[in-house]
């Protein structure tokens, strides 16, 4: 049985009908086309599917869609304002903190929400440039604490 799901995604109110066994990740990607939300491990270990749920980073692969009822969800697509990238996005570009880009949306959203980056895996290379980018954003007032 489908259920109504009302949430705010990247500032826009959306109303959907979803089956309750679907994850927030699936609804964001498949129903709303927000493919910046990445499915990596699908077991909560890699952080590629990180989104902000009411401002807090969570793994959307382990969030049941009905748990987003009434919530405000931010994906990487929601960070730019008026065509201008967010300070954390700019910092990742400035510091070359991107290789294939698969983990990047989750890294950026996690960095905006938490003090530490523990729950995001990069399989291209390593974390030095990513850490550098986050420090750079912090020093420019882009603040890891959005």
């Amino acid at each position: 049985m489908k259920r109504r799901l009302n949430m705010t995604v990247n500032g826009h109110a959306v109303a959907l009908e979803v089956a309750p066994h679907r994850t927030l990740l699936e609804v964001l990607r498949e129903d709303l086309g927000l493919t910046g939300v990445r499915e990596g491990c699908s077991t909560g270990d890699c952080g590629a599917c990180t989104v902000l749920l009411n401002g807090k980073a969570v793994v959307s692969c382990l969030t049941l869609a009905p748990d987003a009822e009434g919530a405000s969800v931010t994906t990487i697509e929601g960070l730019a304002k008026d065509g201008k990238l967010d300070a954390m996005q700019e910092a990742f570009i400035a510091k070359g903190a991107i290789q294939c880009g698969f983990c990047t949306p989750g890294m950026i959203l996690a960095a905006k929400s938490a003090d530490v980056l523990e729950g995001n895996l990069c399989r291209c290379t390593g974390y030095a440039k990513i850490q550098e980018a986050i420090r750079h954003a912090g020093s420019r007032g882009g603040s890891p604490h959005a």
Binding site: G44, A57, V58, V59, L62, A110, A114, V116, G119
Partner: peptide, 9 residues
Amino acid sequence: MASPQVRAM
């Protein structure tokens, strides 16, 4: 335990 994302849930 785990990561900030998981600890929040």
